[in-house]
């Protein structure tokens, strides 16, 4: 009988675990951090994807369905970054609040202007994203419209907390502005620097600090480097003055290591998301750690 009581209490707790809180799910970690900054302690936010993994091919764990089932708001990166894993989860989560046309759904890509929109869309060109390059949040200037969209959505859903969210948003904006001042003084010396990257993931950042991208180690988006393509890259290295090879944390780095050693080009492993490396623990330190690596000679 004693045990029965405990089981009963446990079941009650289980079913009420999330019922009172504002429960927000984001697909990636960087968005969860921005939500934390604006929502403060009035929201509970969980990111689905582990940022040590390839953001294009996240394994759709059943636990994601459980999280999405009780969500009040689902925030996605959009621009088809989640196309390979999220749509089926939304179908399976049985939650009318987070269908794409519902108020509890927010696609952040709608608030920024995307670059590299392909003129031609064909899978002969690899894993192209028809709407443009989806890694837009790696331009720190895009964090403003992202944060604003999140703030507006939170106010739309929970107008009773309007002042609280607005205060937090303004504080966040001020901190970002201060950070940008520091970042930009450090970034001046990178202007015109030529780099190679593995996948076209840091393009927005490269564009923002006026570096130039000479080539990628992937012959086509999503296709791993072939020896023939590496030979092409070597030709490029011989012609141009490449300063860095930028590598993400989830793709194999053997090609980058090989080229770095052979041509004595600095190989930098950069975090692409909050949590991808230990020093990128929030949205500010994400850019801190990228810029540190690029400017610490």
């Amino acid at each position: 009988m004693k045990y029965l009581n405990w089981i009963f209490i446990y079941i009650i707790l289980l079913f009420n675990a999330n019922s009172k809180e504002i429960n927000i799910i984001t697909t990636y970690q960087y968005m969860a951090n921005i939500v934390e900054n604006i929502g403060g302690d009035r929201v509970k936010v969980t990111a689905l994807a582990n940022s040590k993994w390839n953001p294009h091919t996240i394994v759709p764990k059943p636990s994601f369905i459980a999280k999405m089932r009780t969500a009040d708001l689902l925030i996605i990166n959009g621009a088809q970054l989640e196309i390979g894993w999220l749509p089926q989860l939304i179908r399976q989560a049985n939650n009318p609040k987070i269908q794409f046309e519902s108020v509890g759904f927010l696609d952040l890509s709608k608030f920024v202007s995307l670059i590299e929109i392909p003129k031609e869309v064909s899978r002969a060109l690899g894993d192209v994203h028809p709407e443009g390059n989806p890694h837009y949040y790696l331009d720190y200037m895009n964090i403003f419209p992202i944060a604003e969209a999140i703030k507006n959505k939170l106010i739309e859903l929970y107008p009773e907390n309007q002042e609280y969210f607005l205060d937090n948003f303004n504080r966040f904006k001020n901190k970002l502005n201060e950070k940008i001042k520091i970042w930009e003084t450090n970034l001046i010396k990178l202007k015109g620097t030529k780099v190679i990257e593995y996948h076209k993931i840091f393009d927005y950042f490269i564009k923002r600090c006026e570096m130039s991208l000479a080539g990628t180690l992937e012959p086509l988006p999503g296709i791993p480097p072939s020896s023939r393509h590496i030979k092409e890259v070597e030709k490029l290295i011989n012609q141009e003055n490449i300063k860095f090879i930028l590598q993400d944390v989830y793709n194999p780095d053997d090609a980058a290591k090989y080229l770095s050693k052979k041509y004595n080009i600095k190989l930098l492993i950069l975090p692409h998301d909050v949590g991808a490396t230990n020093d990128a623990y929030d949205i500010f330190s994400l850019f801190d750690s990228i810029i540190d690596r690029l400017t610490n000679d």
């Binding site: 059943p62 369905i65 459980a66 089932r69 399976q92 989560a93 049985n94």
Partner: peptide, 12 residues
Amino acid sequence: LNWIAPTNFFLN
């Protein structure tokens, strides 16, 4: 007819 329980873990 399928039902997902509002639990912290996946239960369907």
